[in-house]
Amino acid sequence: MSIDHDSRLRRLKFRAWHRGFREADLILGPFADTHGPNLTPEQLDTFETLMEESDREIYAWIVGQEPTPAKFDTDVLTLIKTFRYEAHASRPIGDGM
């Protein structure tokens, strides 16, 4: 039984928003909402694999606190890093979030 693209995406969005580590939620959730519909089935596979890792590791890779292991240094993680950078850059100075 295969799961269709929309079902996979709904499940991934839920997982991205409910990581348990607020900083990761606030990057991965909006990323999934914004870019998820445009991900290929292979990229969804990659995103699902990434979601299996710990929140703190994923967050550290995204913000550059830790080097990204080669296995996870993918086009999807690059998209997430770019998304996070662009979202942060567009936030007004003094915004408390």
Score class of each variant (00 low, 15 high):
G64L: 14
E48C: 07
R19S: 06
E48M: 06
L77P: 00
E53R: 15
V63R: 04
G96E: 05
H35N: 12
P92C: 02
S90G: 06
W61K: 01
W17Q: 03
W17F: 11
R84F: 05
E42M: 09
E52N: 14
M51G: 02
L39Q: 02
L79N: 05
T74P: 07
L77V: 08
D73C: 05
A32N: 06
P37I: 06
P92N: 06
R15A: 12
G96K: 14
P30Y: 13
N38I: 08
G94D: 07
E66R: 15
T68P: 00
L77F: 06
E52Q: 14
T46K: 02
W61T: 00
T46Y: 06
E57K: 10
R19W: 05
L9I: 08
P92G: 03
E66G: 03
P92M: 03
G64M: 14
A24K: 00
K13E: 13
R10W: 02
E23R: 08
L77T: 05
Q65G: 09
A32R: 01
D4M: 05
G29D: 01
R8K: 15
G36D: 03
R56I: 08
H18E: 14
E23M: 06
E86G: 04
R19P: 02
Y59T: 02
G94Y: 13
D45C: 09
R84Q: 15
D55A: 13
Y85T: 13
Y59W: 15
T68K: 00
D73A: 10
G20Y: 02
R11C: 05
R22Q: 12
I62K: 01
I58F: 04
R91P: 01
T74S: 15
Q43I: 06
P37G: 12
D6G: 13
L77Y: 04
I93W: 11
D55I: 02
K81F: 01
A60L: 03
T46D: 15
H88D: 15
T78V: 07
L26G: 01
I58Y: 00
F14R: 12
R10L: 13
E52R: 11
R8D: 04
E48V: 05
R8C: 05
D45Y: 10
P69L: 12
F14K: 12
Q65I: 05
G20D: 09
F83E: 01
Q43W: 11
R22S: 10
T74A: 08
E42N: 10
K71F: 07
F47Q: 02
A32T: 06
Q43A: 10
E53T: 12
L12A: 14
A60D: 07
N38H: 13
A32L: 07
D33W: 09
E42R: 13
A87W: 00
Q43D: 12
R19L: 08
S90P: 03
Q43R: 10
T49K: 07
F31D: 00
P37C: 13
F31Q: 01
L50M: 11
P30G: 07
P30I: 03
I62D: 00
G36Q: 04
R8I: 08
G94V: 06
K13M: 15
W61L: 02
N38C: 11
A87M: 11
K13C: 14
D55G: 10
R84E: 15
Y85H: 12
T46G: 07
L77Q: 06
E57P: 00
E57T: 06
D73N: 14
H18P: 03
R84I: 01
L44A: 03
S2G: 08
D75N: 14
L9S: 08
T68C: 13
Y85S: 11
E23N: 08
K13L: 14
P30N: 11
R91Y: 03
